[in-house]
Design a protein around this nucleic acid. Structure first.
Lengths: 262, 262
DNA sequence: GCTATACATTGTACATCGTACAGCGTACGG
DNA sequence: CCGTACGCTGTACGATGTACAATGTATAGC
């Protein structure tokens, strides 16, 4: 039922120490640790990749590591912080294409594509809120990299952040739909196509086409065009083009010389 | 912890009958019903408006109606279907401004604004997945109304749906941030400003500005420009303008005559 | 009017979650 | 060599959605 979780729900000090792997100050006294933070992150990520955010439970991760559930709390203060470090680690592992010298459209498309790949390989990353991002090395490196794609276009600092936020928000929104589709399909054991195939005829019985002419016409046109009333891949292509067109009027006003390719 | 839920997780037949208020075929035999579906919807909506989606529990709604939790199952097959009818009811109550004759930019801005108002008055509507929308009278009326804003612009049916989807997806993504902010603030008893105020200095200690020049410069510029690293209202204005600019190149190619206002 | 039946309502119960807490055993600092 | 800090674990609690059986009520058919 539940799909999305919050990050950074814990104490910022503790979380930041975790993210930046601050070494423990005091000398270790007790027994050897059987695991380490990265092992926990890896196991948790593996579980969540295959079973979704609903599958991410402390018990499940512990089982994966052949350890009692409570043991995880030795390495992580709680589930929220675990999600934080998982996210930062995923950011850190993203591929970062060097597109210096290329037209800005190519550079922004690459940024979008890199995030799209992240959301594809780790669908759960699309559904967590990044309002309070994990301020770890991964997230910072990602931010730095993505800003370079917007550097030298005549935008001021705030505009650069605005453009990046808009672009990433679009890619994430698009990926959420795909993630939702997967989660819902798993939850209801019914794919989207099956659901629309079941709901469509039923709807036709109660729906008066004369009362809602546009809805019925456009709805069925869109439904038949892509498979089943919504095609994330098509929406991505369409949306990205519109969005870049929209950024173009801003960017080319700032630097009339810079004409983006494609 | 959990913010987002899925709609339409139940049997489409049962859900559609509920949405369209199909009268029960058989004659009523047992005791009088003490409530009705709309009362349940109203109570559930009131609870969720004030306490968020996490506050929406069957027990809580039942308590509001001074009834045992299991009683709700007389009026609704389950929580998923309850969310469906709640959403459709909220759609049905949305105000629909008549903007016929106005320039397309004005019309689309009105559509965006109406949805923004929905997400403001009922924040939870922004966080539920509408991949499988509640196909009730409210949702259909909303779809019909919003499509009229895109009618007569020379777009084909699929393009109309594409444009609307993109626009609504943007408004929803923006509203999700605001909803997340509220939920996180409630969960951690710490506002966004407080969180950034706590995390910022900590981050400055571990972050090397030389290694991440753009991130530190742009990050702090954006942070000081709006209150705290992200301002949903600003992002909305900025994004909507870019998005309409992007749609302009599509629309004005379709109908060179149609020049949008603003 | 009487009874059988359909239905509204409810208390109890179960599986699942995160995690607080106390106990147990280990290995290092003095 | 011993006290103590720390890793690890079993048990337990409150919260969730909802299945199930029991209880009571109002109507249909006679």
């Amino acid at each position: 039922m539940h799909i999305s979780d919050v990050t950074s729900a814990g104490d910022p000090t503790r979380t930041l120490a975790l993210l930046w792997r601050e070494p423990s100050t005091a000398a270790r006294r007790g027994p050897q640790r059987g695991l380490n933070l990265d092992a926990v992150i890896e196991a948790a990520t593996a579980v969540t990749d295959t079973e979704g955010l609903t599958g991410l439970t402390m018990r499940r991760v512990a089982q994966e590591l052949r350890v009692s559930p409570m043991t995880l709390y030795t390495y992580v203060p709680g589930k929220a912080e675990l999600l934080d470090v998982m996210l930062d680690a995923a950011y850190g592992r993203m591929s970062r294409t060097d597109t210096t010298g290329q037209p800005w459209r190519v550079r922004l498309t690459a940024v979008a594509e890199e995030n799209r790949t992240l959301f594809t390989t780790h669908p759960w990353t699309a559904t967590v809120s990044t309002l309070r991002p994990p301020l770890g090395p991964g997230a910072i490196a990602k931010y730095e990299h993505e800003l370079t794609a917007l550097d030298g276009l005549g935008l001021d600092d705030v505009e650069m952040d605005d453009c990046l936020t808009l672009l990433l928000s679009f890619v994430q929104a698009n990926a959420r739909v795909a993630a939702d589709a997967r989660a819902t399909a798993q939850l209801t054991t019914m794919t989207d196509e099956q659901w629309w195939a079941a709901a469509g005829p039923l709807l036709a019985r109660v729906l008066d086409p004369a009362a809602y002419p546009l809805a019925t016409r456009v709805g069925s046109a869109a439904g038949t065009a892509h498979g089943s009333a919504h095609d994330p891949a098509h929406a991505y292509e369409f949306g990205l083009h519109r969005l870049l067109d929209g950024l173009a009027t801003l960017i080319e006003r700032a630097t009339p010389a810079a004409s983006g390719g494609s």
